[in-house]
Amino acid sequence: GTEIELESKNGQREHYTATSEDEARKIIEKAVRRGIKRIELRGASEQLIRDMQEIAKQIGLQYRTDGSL
């Protein structure tokens, strides 16, 4: 699965493990709508990382991946 670590603007951290790319995408989209400061992805697919970079650029988000592409 993909591990997703979120940090909201007030510094609250949340951790999710998505079993599918679809689920990961839903978690990320929800977080973005809620207003999130930072997202870290571990074990994400190349496609998901590309999507994440696109989203991050659009809304000026900090993100990090573990680089295991």
Rank of each mutant, 00 (worst) to 15 (best):
G1N: 13
G1M: 13
G1H: 12
T2R: 01
T2A: 05
T2G: 05
T2P: 09
T2L: 13
E3N: 09
E3M: 08
E3H: 13
E3K: 12
E3R: 11
E3L: 11
E3P: 02
I4R: 01
I4C: 03
E5D: 12
E5A: 10
E5V: 14
E5L: 13
L6V: 15
L6E: 01
E7C: 11
E7G: 02
E7Y: 11
E7H: 10
E7T: 13
S8W: 15
S8K: 08
S8H: 15
S8P: 04
K9G: 10
K9E: 14
K9F: 08
K9Y: 12
K9I: 14
N10R: 06
N10Y: 10
N10D: 13
N10L: 07
G11F: 02
Q12F: 14
Q12I: 10
Q12S: 10
Q12W: 11
Q12E: 14
R13W: 11
R13T: 10
E14L: 07
E14H: 10
E14W: 12
E14R: 06
H15M: 10
H15S: 09
H15Y: 13
Y16N: 01
Y16W: 09
Y16K: 02
Y16R: 03
Y16T: 02
Y16L: 06
Y16G: 00
Y16H: 07
T17R: 10
T17I: 14
A18E: 04
T19N: 13
T19M: 12
T19F: 11
T19Y: 13
T19I: 10
S20N: 14
E21N: 06
E21S: 06
E21I: 09
E21V: 07
D22M: 06
D22H: 11
D22K: 08
E23A: 07
E23T: 03
E23D: 08
E23V: 05
E23G: 04
A24C: 06
A24Y: 02
A24F: 05
R25M: 08
R25S: 02
R25C: 03
R25L: 10
R25K: 07
R25T: 02
K26C: 13
K26P: 01
K26A: 12
I27M: 04
I27E: 00
I27W: 07
I28T: 01
E29V: 07
E29N: 07
E29C: 15
E29G: 06
E29M: 12
E29Y: 10
K30V: 08
K30R: 10
K30G: 12
K30S: 13
K30W: 12
K30C: 14
K30N: 14
K30A: 14
A31G: 05
A31H: 05
A31L: 08
A31E: 02
A31C: 06
V32S: 02
V32L: 14
V32E: 01
R33T: 08
R33F: 07
R33S: 10
R33C: 13
R34N: 13
R34Q: 12
R34W: 05
R34P: 04
G35Y: 03
G35L: 02
G35N: 06
G35I: 01
I36Y: 10
I36F: 09
I36N: 01
I36R: 03
K37R: 14
K37T: 09
K37L: 12
K37E: 05
K37N: 08
R38Y: 11
I39Q: 00
I39F: 04
I39K: 00
I39M: 06
E40V: 15
E40K: 13
E40Y: 13
E40P: 00
E40H: 11
L41H: 00
L41N: 00
L41V: 14
L41A: 02
L41G: 01
L41R: 00
L41T: 04
R42M: 06
R42H: 10
R42S: 06
R42D: 03
R42P: 02
R42Q: 08
G43R: 07
G43L: 03
G43M: 04
G43C: 10
A44D: 00
S45M: 02
S45C: 05
S45V: 02
S45R: 02
S45T: 08
S45Y: 01
E46N: 09
E46C: 13
E46I: 13
E46L: 10
Q47I: 06
Q47M: 05
Q47K: 09
Q47Y: 05
Q47D: 09
L48S: 01
L48I: 04
L48H: 01
L48F: 07
L48P: 00
I49Q: 10
I49N: 05
I49V: 08
R50E: 06
D51G: 04
D51H: 12
D51R: 07
M52R: 00
M52P: 00
M52K: 00
M52L: 15
Q53D: 15
Q53A: 11
Q53H: 12
Q53V: 14
E54S: 09
E54H: 06
E54G: 06
I55W: 12
I55A: 03
A56M: 06
K57I: 11
K57M: 09
K57C: 09
K57P: 03
K57Q: 10
K57A: 12
K57L: 12
Q58R: 10
I59T: 13
G60D: 11
G60E: 12
G60N: 08
G60S: 05
G60M: 05
G60I: 07
L61K: 04
L61G: 05
L61I: 09
L61N: 04
L61W: 09
Q62R: 09
Q62H: 13
Y63R: 02
Y63T: 05
Y63Q: 06
Y63M: 15
Y63A: 05
Y63S: 05
Y63L: 15
Y63V: 15
Y63D: 08
R64D: 15
R64F: 15
T65N: 14
T65C: 15
T65Q: 14
T65Y: 06
T65S: 13
T65E: 15
D66R: 01
D66C: 13
D66L: 04
D66S: 03
S68F: 05
L69H: 07
L69W: 15
L69Y: 13
L69E: 10
L69C: 14
